[in-house]
Structure formats: C-alpha cells, structure tokens
C-alpha cells in the first residue's frame, strides 16, 4: 500500500507529534508514504474566506503532483483534508472549473486520484481487524472521548466517509486498540479554530464546553485527528480552565499516538512527551507504559 503523503504546514511545526506518530504507525502497518515533493500550503480558512479560486487552486497543485505519480493522497490534518477534498470536488463537478484550476496551476489535473483522510485509510482501507491483530499492548481501561470537530465530517458531500452528526470511525478505532470510547455529546462541536488567536473570548467558551463535556462523560482523555484542534485542546486547557474557575486534566492524543502506544512504541518515539497536558500520570495509572514482556519472550 503506497500513498502520496501531504503532511501540511502544522505537521512540520506545532503538530509534529502527528507527523512522527503517523510515520511510525504507517511503517508498522506496511504503508509506504511518499511525501509530495515541494508541497505547498492548502490555504486553509484564510484562502477560502478571501478568494474562491485561490482556495481551490492552492490544494489542487499538490493533488496534481500526486496524480502524476498515480497515487491516492493521505492527509492527516482535518483542515487540509477538507480543503483538498473541496478542490477535488470542484474539479470533478465542473469541467469549466477544472480548466480554470489548470490554467492557474499550469498543470493538467484530472482529479482521477482520491484524497483520503488518514483516519479513513486506517479504518476503512487498512481495516480494524488488521489493526487489532497488531495490538500488543491493548489500551485496557482507557476511557477515550473521540473528538472529530468540524472539518473531518462536514460538509458530508465533501468529506464523504463518516456520519456528520454522530461519526464513529475514531470510536471504533479506539475500541479495536482495546480502549473504551465514551459516548458524549460534543464530538462534532467546533473548538474555535483560529479564534483562539483572533477572538480568544469566543474560543474559550467553546473549548470549555468540550472539556466539561468530556469530563462529565467520564473520559480520561481526548483523541483528535487535527493538529489545529489538538493545539487548541492541549495548549489552552489550563488557561481555559482558569478562565472558567475550573480545572481540567484531560490529556489529548492524536489517534496515531494511541495506535503507536497499542503497538508498544515508546511514548518518546511517538512525540507524546511533547504535549502540554502531562500524559505520563494517566499512562502509568492505566499501566500502559509497561513493556509487553510475554510478547517479547514469544518472539
């Protein structure tokens, strides 16, 4: 299994654990990731709120490079994924739009390849049975609130792989790793996105709802598939708690980190030591740091 890999800007900066853990688990599962050479930024919200054409042309260039290699595209970041699927749909739905895109990028993009969320690839292409077979250190007793946010599941005609109101793919993945997904009402609520920078007063309120919702559901931690959501949820937790006279201690994981832990990788090799909310106490209390001795002796 080989994919064109589009890490996106965040995975080379604040989201580097996501990149690290993605590469580890992909290798472990025999997925070859071919990083798109010279890839450019997808333009994110700033582009689509400024210029409709720019918003589809920026991602299309990356997709066109992957297409030339005959490869489907694996995108870990939910925000990039959304912009790239929008560009793919724009090119597929209108020949005139496809021509416009091609005039702008100076390439012949035919949208014959498929752009996939990394989560979709893991759950629906690799498959949960295959993943479960690789688990040597099940996440027994770990109660996880799966947080999908917005752009992984909306609008469904663009994202196209999970239910927009009650998505299940991350919950099912957690279960296949031996963990316990909790049922909770805020899995698709917005984290505030860029408002943590521009209107922190608004974002704080949204984040507070998510933390309290996860805590009330009895979750030990949150799991995310987006570096922007992750940064908001992890870095701002203490601050938002303080602003609401509350205190939360909910470690946040990328789903690839949980996979890596279940495959018995050391937290350091997955980047888990670089989070803001300390993770070690939780992993210790659930005995998730112990090496799977029996398995080692077997091999």
């Amino acid at each position: 299994m080989k994919y064109a890999y589009y890490p996106g800007c965040s995975l080379h900066a604040t989201g580097l654990e996501y990149d690290l853990s993605t590469r580890q688990v992909a290798k472990h599962l025999g997925i070859e990731l071919w990083e798109i050479p010279d890839w450019n930024c997808c333009g994110a919200s700033a582009a689509h709120n400024t210029n409709h054409t720019l918003a589809v042309a920026l991602p299309a260039r990356n997709l066109a490079i992957a297409e030339q290699e005959g490869l489907d595209v694996a995108v870990p970041c939910a925000a990039c994924f959304n912009r790239m699927r929008a560009a793919q749909a724009a090119a597929r739905n209108s020949e005139a739009m496809r021509q416009t895109i091609n005039d702008i990028i100076g390439m012949d993009y035919r949208a014959s390849n498929e752009t996939c969320a990394l989560l979709d690839i893991m759950v629906n292409r690799v498959g949960l049975e295959t993943i479960a077979e690789k688990v040597v250190k099940p996440l027994t007793g770990l109660k996880v609130a799966a947080y999908y946010g917005c752009l992984l599941v909306r609008p469904p005609e663009i994202t196209g792989f999970d239910d927009p109101e009650n998505p299940q793919s991350m919950d099912r993945l957690v279960a296949s790793l031996g963990g316990t997904p909790v049922d909770w009402p805020f899995k698709i609520e917005c984290c505030g996105a860029g408002h943590t920078t521009t209107r922190p007063d608004i974002a704080s309120r949204l984040l507070y709802r998510i933390y309290s919702g996860a805590a009330a559901a009895g979750a030990d931690c949150l799991v995310s598939a987006c570096p922007l959501c992750f940064l908001n949820l992890d870095m701002r937790q203490e601050q938002v708690g303080r602003e609401h006279n509350a205190s939360f201690s909910l470690p946040v994981f990328y789903f690839t980190e949980l996979m890596g832990l279940a495959f018995a990788y050391a937290p350091k090799d997955l980047g888990i030591n670089r989070h803001f909310v300390p993770v070690a106490p939780l992993l210790e209390s659930k005995e998730l740091l112990r090496h799977p001795v029996t398995r080692r002796e077997e091999t």
Binding site: D38, W39, N40, C41, N51, T53, L54, A57, L58, R61, D103, I104, I105, G106
Partner: peptide
C-alpha cells in the same frame, strides 16, 4: 517550498 508555483497561483487567482 514551491514558491514560484505558489506566487504564480496567487497572481492568476487574483
């Protein structure tokens, strides 16, 4: 990365 290509995309899209 891809600076020339991106500069061209900006100019043409605008």
């Amino acid at each position: 990365a891809g600076r020339e290509a991106v500069a061209r995309i900006f100019a043409r899209a605008h």
